[in-house]
Each structure stands twice: as C-alpha cells, then as structure tokens.
Computed example of a mutant assay.
Amino acid sequence: MEIIIALAVVGLLVLFFVAQYNRLIRLNISVDESFAQIEVQLKRRSDLIPNLVETVKGYAAHEQGTFDAVVTARAKATTASTVADVAAADGMLTQALRGLLAVAEAYPDLKASSNFLSLQEELSTTENKVAFSRQFYNDNVRNLNTAVKTIPTNFFAGFAKVTEREFYEVEDPQDRNVPKVTF
C-alpha cells in the first residue's frame, strides 16, 4: 500500500513538472510567433513604401530630403533583427512616413490622385495591423514574463531554458508630446 502511495505521489509530481515545462514552452513559442507577425506586417508596410514614394515624387520632385529620409528608414527597418533594433527602426520609419504624408498634404492634385488615395488607405490599414501585432506581442511577453517570475513556474524556467523577454517599445518622441490645441 505504501509503495502505491509513493508511486502515485511520484507520478503526480512528474505530471506537474511536465505540465509546467510545457506551459513555459508554449508561452515562449507564442512570443516568437507574435514577433514574427510584427515582422510580417512591417514587411508589408515596407513593400508599400516604394510605390508611395514614387507617387509623391511625381508631384513633389523637389522634396528630395523627405524621400531620402523615407528610403534610409526603410533600409534600416529591413535589416534590423533584435526586438530593440526592430522597434527603433519602426519608430524611425513611422517618423519618415509622417514627413512624406505631410509633404503630400501640400499638393491638392496628389491628394486627389486615386493611386495615392489607394496607397494611403493601404498604408493606414497596414499601420493598424502593425499596432495590433505589437499589442499581441506585448500581451504574449507579459504572459511569459509573469510565468517566469511567479511560483511555481519560475522553478522550471531554467530547466526549460526560458527567460524573460523584452517588450516591443517604439521610441517616438512626437507621441510623447502633448498636442497644442487652440481655438
């Protein structure tokens, strides 16, 4: 009888260990998958940019500095690999795109162009998908980091070779400034 109880306890401990290990592995895979989704959406945005730049160039060829900023930011965004590098490049590209769209505002014929309007709509849709992907990634990172730091899963994190992950944060100084509203 004592042997059966001892085997049952050992069996329960093994099941508990396996469950905690598998949970950490699933959370880690979810973080990797959600980061891959960010990269998919950023690639989609990057693919739209040359068409947008060429469309605006047709109307505002003298805005070379703006075009160069967008092309440079796009190049950095396509070569970034770590979460921090991707986030920094993402912020830089977002700033450059704002500059490009600001240039477009000065050209009524461009704003009325169906090609430009279509590209602008596609870019807007993609920006929404990028924002959703960032949030999804950060939610998964939060779940993983919580599991890695809390009992009992923190005892198994080292064995599963799972560590805390960094959040996706885009450093965009313009987003931190309070807008000035005048009437």
Rank of each mutant, 00 (worst) to 15 (best):
A6G: 09
N177S: 14
N145G: 02
V141G: 01
L119W: 01
D175M: 13
T146S: 14
K149C: 00
Q20W: 02
Y59F: 14
R142C: 02
A147D: 02
R142F: 06
A77Q: 08
S124V: 05
A69T: 10
D139I: 07
F132C: 01
V9T: 04
A75G: 13
L27F: 10
V103G: 00
G158C: 04
N177T: 14
N51L: 04
T78I: 12
T126E: 03
E121A: 14
L13A: 11
F17H: 11
E164V: 08
V31K: 03
V18L: 15
Q135P: 00
H62K: 09
S133T: 08
K180Q: 13
G58K: 06
V83S: 07
F16W: 14
V170C: 09
A19D: 00
R45W: 06
P108Q: 12
L110G: 04
F167L: 12
R165D: 02
E54C: 04
V40L: 10
T126A: 13
Q41L: 03
T153R: 10
E171S: 14
V56S: 00
A61L: 05
V103H: 05
A96T: 05
A84P: 00
K161C: 03
F159K: 08
S34H: 04
F136D: 11
K43T: 14
G91T: 07
L7Q: 01
F116Y: 15
P179H: 08
E2R: 15
L48K: 10
V148E: 01
F156I: 04
N138P: 08
E39T: 10
V103F: 06
S46K: 07
L52C: 07
L27P: 00
A89K: 08
D172A: 09
N145R: 07
V18G: 04
V18S: 02
I25L: 11
D175R: 15
S30R: 14
V71W: 05
V170D: 04
S133A: 15
V18C: 08
R45N: 03
F35P: 00
D47E: 08
P50R: 11
K43S: 15
Q20D: 01
Q135N: 14
A96P: 08
E122S: 14
V71K: 13
A73M: 09
F167Q: 09
N28D: 14
N154G: 00
A106G: 15
Y107R: 11
F67C: 07
Q120L: 06
D85F: 04
T72L: 05
L123M: 13
Q41V: 03
R74S: 02
A89F: 03
D47H: 07
L117V: 11
Y107W: 12
F155H: 11
S30M: 06
V9I: 15
I151A: 10
E33I: 02
F159A: 11
Q41P: 01
V10I: 15
G158L: 01
L42G: 03
R165I: 01
E127P: 06
P179V: 12
Q20I: 09
A77D: 00
Q135I: 04
L101W: 04
Q41E: 11
N143R: 13
A147S: 12
V181A: 11
Q20L: 13
F17N: 02
V53A: 04
